[in-house]
């Protein structure tokens, strides 16, 4: 079980860094609340509740992008990634740990964002919460993976949204479906399918992203 010990140690490192420096989470929180306020004014008066549900997903996606863009910045600035690749641990552990850390940040941001959404717009059902949890897994798994690639390119922060948004379209479909459809079961199943498929793909190919 050294694999999970490695993952735990790496994830703890990221959480500890965030606790000390606090540069990602406050930004995400402020961003998501500001987005809700912008949405309030961009929705015409008397528009339906369904439109607001859709916007919740846009807010989640962009907040996640904000966090993911920061995910590998410490690694790049301090050249930690080179050290991690040399360390005698499986390379996919780096991805898994980073995904868990970003998932924790995104989850923490949503713990505030969802009640604020309920306060500003309308109440949120259990299906929406389940959808958000499943979508978060997919967003963090794929987003962390792409973040590791984007950070090694010349374009850097510019590239991550371009790489990520086409891959996030199925997540939005599943999430919006889970929050607005009468029977959310199949949308949740679809999100779970997405998580499993892309999670496995990321896990299997991450090694090639950090090594040559």
């Amino acid at each position: 079980m050294t694999y999970f010990a490695d993952v735990g140690a790496l994830a703890r490192k990221d959480l500890l860094l965030e606790l000390r420096a606090r540069d990602t989470l406050p930004a995400m929180l402020l961003f998501v609340v500001a987005t809700f306020v912008v949405f309030h004014f961009s929705l015409p008066a008397h528009s339906s509740q369904l439109a607001a549900s859709g916007l919740l997903w846009v807010a989640i996606l962009f907040t996640a992008l904000l966090g993911l863009g920061r995910a590998f910045v410490p690694e790049r600035e301090q050249r930690v990634l080179d050290g991690l690749v040399l360390a005698p641990c499986d390379r996919s552990a780096i991805w898994l740990a980073k995904s868990i850390a970003t998932l924790a940040f995104l989850g923490a941001a949503e713990l505030v964002a969802l009640p604020v959404f309920a306060l500003f717009f309308h109440g949120i059902g259990a299906a929406t919460v389940a959808g958000v949890v499943l979508a978060d897994i997919g967003i963090c798994a794929v987003g962390t993976f792409l973040g590791a690639m984007a950070v090694a390119t010349r374009a850097r922060d510019l590239l991550l949204p371009l790489l990520f948004l086409p891959l996030a379209i199925p997540i939005v479909v599943g999430g919006v479906g889970a929050s607005v459809a009468g029977s959310p079961g199949r949308y949740l199943a679809f999100l779970a399918l997405y998580d499993v498929l892309f999670g496995l793909l990321c896990w299997a190919t991450f090694e090639y992203v950090v090594t040559e």
């Binding site: 690639m149 090694a152 390119t153 790489l163 086409p166 891959l167 379209i169 199925p170 479909v173 599943g174 479906g177 199949r186 949308y187 679809f190 399918l193 997405y194 498929l197 892309f198 793909l201 190919t205 090639y208 992203v209 090594t211 040559e212």
Partner: peptide, 23 residues
């Protein structure tokens, strides 16, 4: 490596997106 990995994401995305658009 980057191109290869991203191209592999593409073939997984095709059926997943198709399903998503259907539902």
């Amino acid at each position: 490596n980057f191109s290869a990995v991203y191209a592999l994401f593409g073939v997984v995305l095709i059926p997943v997106s198709f399903l998503a658009i259907r539902i």
